[in-house]
């Protein structure tokens, strides 16, 4: 007992530290994923789904349309709700993500918006996230570059 008494400040310090660490760990408004995992999930477009695949999908899903006001896209999709991208992290919208047990499918007319939102949500710990893409193959180069073999750098300064 006497020994414990002499250690009480040490234990007090450790307990305070533990409480602080726990409070921080369970703060919902913080990122806590490994970015490497996010990269892994996004490579080779594993995280995207086309319209045709969506039609064929036989599990439940929820489509989130990220369009805002003027930019709101008029594509009509079943089971879709509109969350403007600015309000993505509002409490009410957060609960939608949290409570949804189905696949969440992000859609926006602007591919860059969905890409950024996907990373943010993935980092917040939502795993069942897909990006709806109109293209069959996103991220392909649509043109053909033809090298000009007649170029002589020594004759023509750049």
């Amino acid at each position: 007992m006497e020994q414990f008494k002499s250690l009480r400040f040490i234990f007090l310090f450790l307990i305070i530290l533990l409480v602080l660490v726990l409070v921080r760990s369970f703060n919902p408004n913080l990122f806590r994923q490994d970015p490497g995992k996010t990269v892994e999930a996004a490579i080779n477009n594993n995280n995207s789904i086309t319209f045709a695949q969506l039609k064929a999908l036989n599990t439940q899903y929820l489509v989130i349309n990220l369009g805002t006001g003027g930019k709101f896209d008029s594509v009509k999709i079943k089971n879709s709700i509109n969350i403007p991208v600015e309000n993505l992290l509002d409490k009410a919208n957060q609960t939608i993500f949290k409570e949804s047990k189905d696949e969440i499918i992000l859609y926006s007319a602007d591919v860059s918006t969905t890409a950024k939102v996907w990373v943010i949500l993935n980092q917040l710990g939502f795993k069942k996230l897909l990006i709806l893409t109109p293209d069959e193959q996103p991220e392909v180069f649509k043109y053909k570059f033809q090298p000009d073999t007649s170029v002589r750098l020594e004759n023509d300064s750049i």
Binding site: F31, P35, T38, V39, A42, D110, V111, S112, T114, A115, K116, W118, V119, I120, Q123, P138, E139, V140, F141
Partner: peptide, 17 residues
Amino acid sequence: GNDDRTACYAWTISTGM
């Protein structure tokens, strides 16, 4: 990238970091 998407992934990750 070829399109906006991968570049935006990279942007969000590096900005987030």
